[in-house]
Every structure is written in C-alpha cells, then in structure tokens.
Design a protein around this nucleic acid. Sequence first.
DNA 1: CTCTTGACGCCGG
DNA 2: TCCGGCGCCAAGA
Length: 112
Amino acid sequence: MDDLAVKVLAVVRRIPSGRVLTYGDVAALAEADATARDVGQVLLRHGDADDIPWWRVLRADGTPPPHLLDRQLAHLRSEGTPLAPSGAAVDLHAARWAASGLGQDAQPSLFD
DNA sequence: CTCTTGACGCCGG
DNA sequence: TCCGGCGCCAAGA
C-alpha cells in the first residue's frame, strides 16, 4: 500500500452518500501527482475493501466503466443518487460532490 | 530494457 | 450523438 493509494482511498471514503466524484476529481483532491488513470489503478487493487464506497467514483461523463455498469448503478440507485434521464448514467451536474475547500459537504446547486 | 495492459479523458469526424 | 484514435502513465511479464 503506497502513499498514493492511502491518499486516494482517504478521499473516496469522504464522499458523502448520495454524492459522487469523477476519477479526475479524486486525483486532484488526493494532492499528489495523481492522474485519473492512477485512481483507477488504486481502486482496482484496493476497491474491494468494505469501508471503501468505490461506486461513488465515476468517469468524467457520469457513466461507470462498462464491466461494472450493473453493480455500480445498483449501489447508486439504492442510496438515492440523482441519475440522468437515461438512467444509464449519473446526473453529474446534480450529484457531483463540491468537495474543494468546503469541508464535509456542499450543495449541488453551487455548480449552477 | 521493451512491450502490453487498463476502474481515464479529450478531440475530431 | 456515437465512435475511434491518441495521449497519458504506472505495473507486470
């Protein structure tokens, strides 16, 4: 478990239920030279831990990676995450967690 | 040391 | 809107 993984997982654990972040967001919040790809690598290795809400991390367009589509959407629906009209993706505009410098939580409307 | 792989993201057709 | 291609970069083989 390297330092980068610790930081990335710490960020993911802080995502409130019903909110989401993109891989790129997590990379930026990890305060390291992490890229979105690195975040994917970390979750690939450690995403199985029970205390890690990996399903709250999505791609930049709000869709989950293809092989996780069903499982991930099931988790998101169960915790009331705002989905896009299509139902196949998350409504990022509404559900994206405004974490930067705002502490524990934030209002989705900040993005309007 | 080189080559492949992949939970990403952006851009052009 | 839907693809396909390309850049990116750390790990393994």
